[in-house]
Write a protein that binds this DNA or RNA. Structure first.
Lengths: 334, 334
DNA sequence: TTGTATGCGTTATCAT
DNA sequence: ATGATAACGCATACAA
């Protein structure tokens, strides 16, 4: 047997379809008595409104899609959780689009919004792709997390990556380090660019020359950190500390150092960025920057909601507070 | 300006809407010349069919939803990836529903299929909830991964958890261990039940008495393993090896052992299950069971596709081969 | 307060 | 090979 439609319910209740529709969408417009009656029938028949038809009629899906660069990176989990809870609260569905570290997959999902399958997009991707650009010019609701794009005035929420990076570096410099290597990603996307700037800025502030040979580029993952560390060690350059632009890279780097017989932090200090779950469990526990992930997610959704409802956004490009988490890998406790 | 509809395209091309629809869905039914022409116009106007309308008409969404117990557990990432690639290949969208370890959220998503928002469900959840049961009785397409439910004849794909668990235990016993603790989860869901059975079966086969005090129940996560190990150590019972029913628990257990000043594997061997990414990076690298995650995902989707198309399924409850991965944590190399 | 009628953008069934 | 038109299930402007 087929699922009952609004028509079936109307027949059974002895009223018109409009009344059924109203008790569901605008209950105040209908007389309490009939409302009761209709609700009763609805329950009896176990009627479920056809969401597709409703969406076609209203031209809205009450769903948003979140573009995640790589769902395996636990840094994104907290953000997703924040978006999800807020979306749920507002009666929205959250769809997750995993790019699997292949930015080219993005265009596939951007079609979704153009085909009206979702009402808005939140991008956790660090790339400002051309496809994404067309969305903006065509005025589709879009919010970016993790990075703030300066040229385009896209609503976004993030921490001040440069300041955070500088704080991390200042800590290392205060501990006496002067030869500090930096592991980052290639291509150099937005938040990593800021972190690199913070690295350079901190060095300059302390009159330490910047050595480009100590700056390395690779993949933002354990393997990337491992490989970068390895080639860096092969260069025979002196360095007493490593600042990895992400905790996963920091883990890879530490693994490489250990494989080389070097101790962390005694022979070489290591600091990371993001504070993923593993960072406190790994040995030695990683000194890093903690971002308010859950909060970032929630605020991102709130901004998107405003956008979707054509309401003004108070602070378009919002910066949230970060935290310098000092643990063992920087040698603080020595 | 609004997005063009099929009507707009028809007007611009000087044909009827039916023809436009045909060039998109049944290109063979239309004369090559007009087809060319229409495609040209479509490109010019950048026409995107309204998916909602199409779905309402065809009563299908070409989307499936995957219920994930906890997206933070990397064990599921490989399965998701497998489902995703296969779904993409078949022109289906994959929606991810994260239960955040709260099975109660499941009912929320099950409504989705009842409201025709998706054509099928793949559950990676180990629970056989009542809600899920109603789906089966109402003949909605459903496939389960990670567990095979014996009583219900639900199509599923998994490894033989009991045999794998037994293999792991046999390896430990061969290395000389006789007092082996087992860390598992509470409530005892399906695949964990099988792993426990394998644990017991292996002991019995080697005439080793089963000591219930050595079997511990907790959360399937790093913290759960840590806490369980801690209470186990407090009992002052003798054991020389630990079999954790999941790698995350194994990591937590090893952390607790280290915090107690015990060395792994010298003082206590540890083995896990699932072979998550971290298992090879962690020190000591974890001996574990590798499941063919990607393949499990692919096959799960294929089964679901057959179900959705009312085709027969060759093997309803399918078992895939597993692999015993011997690394450092079991003391093999000593 | 309730009912009637129209349209949302497609696809599918008839015709032609 | 193509066109006219009726659904799909719902929400809403308008009428009563």
């Amino acid at each position: 047997m087929n699922a009952p439609t609004i028509k079936d319910v109307a027949n059974a209740a002895g009223v018109s379809v409009a009344t059924i529709s109203r008790v569901l969408s605008n209950p105040d417009l209908v007389k309490p008595a009939t409302k009761e009656h209709v609700l009763q029938i609805i329950k009896e028949m176990n009627y479920q409104p056809n969401v597709l038809a409703r969406q076609l009629r209203t031209q809205t899906t009450r769903a948003v899609i979140v573009i995640v660069p790589n769902i395996e990176n636990s840094f994104f989990h907290g953000i997703l959780s924040g978006i999800g809870t807020e979306a749920e609260r507002q009666g929205y569905q959250m769809l997750i689009a995993d790019l699997k570290s292949q930015p080219s997959l993005e265009k596939h999902y951007i079609e979704a919004i153009k085909q009206r399958q979702v009402d808005g997009i939140i991008s956790l991707s660090a790339n400002m792709t051309q496809k994404l650009e067309t969305l903006i010019t065509e005025r589709y609701p879009l919010v970016m997390v993790v990075q703030c794009v300066p040229n385009y005035k896209i609503p976004s929420v993030s921490i001040d990556n440069m300041a955070a990076s500088k704080a991390l570096m200042t800590h290392l410099i205060r501990l006496g380090h002067r030869e500090i290597a930096h592991l980052t990603v290639s291509p150099l996307q937005m938040p990593y660019q800021d972190r690199l700037n913070g690295y350079i800025s901190a060095l300059e502030e302390h009159k330490i020359p910047v050595d480009n040979e100590l700056i390395s580029y690779g993949e933002p993952a354990i393997k990337g950190g491992y490989d970068q560390m390895w080639t860096l060690l092969a260069k025979q350059k002196k360095f007493t500390a490593v600042f990895a632009a992400g905790d996963t890279m920091a883990i890879g780097a530490m693994k490489a150092l250990k494989d080389q017989g070097l101790r962390v932090p005694e022979d070489c200090a290591v600091v990371g960025f993001d504070d993923i779950d593993l960072s406190s469990v790994w040995e030695p526990a990683i000194t890093t920057i903690r971002q308010p992930k859950e909060m970032m997610g929630r605020i991102a959704f709130q901004k998107l909601l405003a956008l979707m409802q054509n309401e003004p956004i108070a602070v378009s490009q919002e910066y949230l507070p970060y935290e310098l988490v000092i643990r063992e890998s920087c040698g603080y406790f020595l």
